[in-house]
């Protein structure tokens, strides 16, 4: 479990996030909500990456979370954000449990393509499902927060932001605890040498399965928050470009820290928004140049950069 210091840090981080939201304008809060929800999906990827697996189908669970929450609202008549997001996360987790045994036996490119195939399968099915709005998707209503309904647009966005912040910090803390636990450390072993892990008496398949389900749950929570923030769900949530974006955030973040994942997600959203404001004709090009620059100059991600700054001596010794 987390020690008291880490818990204190998490609480501080949460207070800082909540306070920042009060100062920032509505559009920035909204941008951060999206960044946090995508960050959660990318955090799931980092969980998998620790065991040396790269999923190109994280969008499947993002979509499952979004549709789970959305349909719970539209068909189930539930409007409470906590129930909707919890339901979305749970739905994604169930799909993770159902598909996990299939993918847990695969590694490397086969794992990546199989997860990609699964998510594109769901994308294809959703585009043909007329009762779910097909490619146009469905519109949702504004959620309530424990019985409270926001009176204005600003309040609604801040409430969502605060809600997303609490979830992100809590789940980041849990991931941190997981990374330091025996099972979490075994994941690193899986990446390095599967046979040795098997000789330790653990099932590698099981470790991969568990990580896959954790990743599914995180993406589901993220997708549900995204759906509530957008008030709209459509099959694009499961499209490969969505999954690709999570992969990029995970690469941008590196595996050095949990916080870096969210920092990277915010950075990507800010760069995208900025490039689309100033270069409406070439925003994809700007994003591409940014991605290239990150891969060329920061191969270990933002996390590594911030780590290096805080511990320059280690780096100096290494050189």
């Amino acid at each position: 479990m987390l020690d008291w210091r880490s818990t204190a840090h998490l609480c501080m981080a949460l207070v800082a996030l909540l306070a920042a939201g009060l100062v920032l304008p509505g559009w920035a809060n909204f941008l951060l909500v999206i960044a946090l929800s995508k960050g959660l999906a990318a955090l799931g990827l980092v969980v998998l990456l620790r065991s040396g697996l790269l999923s190109f189908g994280q969008g499947l669970f993002y979509c499952a979370g979004g549709y789970g929450a959305g349909l719970l609202m539209l068909w189930g008549g539930i409007s409470d954000a906590a129930l909707l997001v919890g339901g979305g996360g749970l739905f994604a987790l169930l799909i993770g449990v159902a598909t996990g045994p299939l993918v847990a036996g695969y590694r490397k490119i086969f794992f990546a393509t199989l997860t990609l195939a699964l998510s594109m399968l769901v994308h294809g099915a959703l585009t043909k499902a007329d009762f779910l709005g097909g490619t146009d998707g469905l519109n949702l209503r504004a959620p309530t927060f424990f019985g409270w309904r926001a009176g204005s647009a600003g309040e609604n966005v801040y409430a969502l932001y605060a809600f997303a912040s609490i979830l992100a910090v809590a789940l980041a803390g849990l991931c941190r605890a997981h990374f330091g636990s025996v099972r979490g450390l075994l994941s690193l072993g899986v990446r390095d040498n599967e046979i040795r892990i098997e000789y330790l008496g653990t099932s590698v398949r099981r470790v991969v399965f568990e990580n896959f389900v954790i990743a599914a749950f995180l993406a589901g929570i993220g997708g549900a928050i995204n759906a509530l923030a957008l008030s709209h769900i459509d099959p694009e949530l499961a499209f490969w470009t969505t999954s690709g974006e999570f992969v990029f955030v995970a690469i941008l973040a590196g595996q050095a820290s949990v916080v870096a994942v969210f920092a990277a997600s915010v950075l990507l959203e800010v760069v995208r928004s900025w490039s689309s404001q100033y270069f409406p004709n070439a925003w994809q090009l700007t994003l591409g140049v940014f991605m290239l620059a990150v891969i060329l100059f920061l191969p270990n991600g933002v996390g590594a950069l911030l780590r290096r700054r805080s511990r320059p001596s280690v780096e100096a010794d290494a050189k």
Partner: peptide
């Protein structure tokens, strides 16, 4: 640019109005 999916569009629309 309308390209980039609904999430981006909603974000950009909010930026347009509020920012």
């Amino acid at each position: 640019d309308e390209n980039g999916g609904t999430t981006k569009q909603v974000q950009e629309l909010r930026n347009g109005y509020e920012r």
